[in-house]
Amino acid sequence: MLTPASEQAERIATLTNYFFVAAAAILLVVTLLTIIFLVKYRAKPGDNTLPPKIFRSRKAELFIVGIPLALVSFFFVLTLRDMRALEPGADTQHPDVIITGHQWWWQADYPGTGVVAANEIHLPVGRKVLMRLRSADVIHDWWVPELGNKMDLIPGRSNHLWLTIRKPGVYEGACSEFCGQQHAWMRIRVVAQTESEYKAWLAAHAAPAIAPAGELAQRGATVFQEKTCGNCHRIAGTEAKGDAGPDLTHLSSRKTLLAGLMDNTAPNLGRWLNHPQQIKPGAYMPDFLLKPSEREALVAYLVQLK
């Protein structure tokens, strides 16, 4: 929120600045009065005269109610104005992307394109984007501080969020509503791209997975089938059509593994497949007790999925 990069985040940042100025002024007054009174009215040793009694003062009471009332009324008006601007409603519009929260990763569906992504969410800059937010299990919360407001993903409800990203870049966020054991590793990477780059990305990701090249990778594809990985994961263009875990069609195009837990490299992928519960305890990925040769083949297959 300190470096706003969307129209919405800028609006909130401006409002926050107004608020901080008012808050700082109030804090200053209270602190100064406290210190001045402490210094000025500190009892002198041995002085036993009774200070004057002041039971009340109508004038002062008018002041100490009037000023805060005026201030909160001012901020209430700003609240109404900005709330309407940030949340104009979304009854009929089709979303650009549907985000589904899972324990502990993000699924992104791009309606009309067939593209399914996970954890790295690509969005276009310069235009208003509508996101639909849903949950597959417990409550999660979308928060990318540089891009503006949070919104909860609640099972049984469908929420939405408007975003107008100003400039291309990578913006980090995280799930912000406690969602269980691995809440800390449910991070978001928003990749904001120009419209043409975004279109190109969509086109590339609409394509099915490339066929495994080389003997090792081909063996890996077989392992993938035999170990029933496809019950939970989808790889477009193959038998694997599961939707409980992240889509792996273009796994290698992603920067990180496990929603931000580690870099997406072949050795890391191997470590994860070896002992999932040591890398991300609580995750729904079972330990398949892969033989080293099987693991090696599987990694070779997966790193090719660009």
Partner: peptide
């Protein structure tokens, strides 16, 4: 209480 700030923080 200022809803847009709450949405961030």
């Amino acid at each position: 209480a200022i809803v847009p700030i709450d949405w961030q923080l």
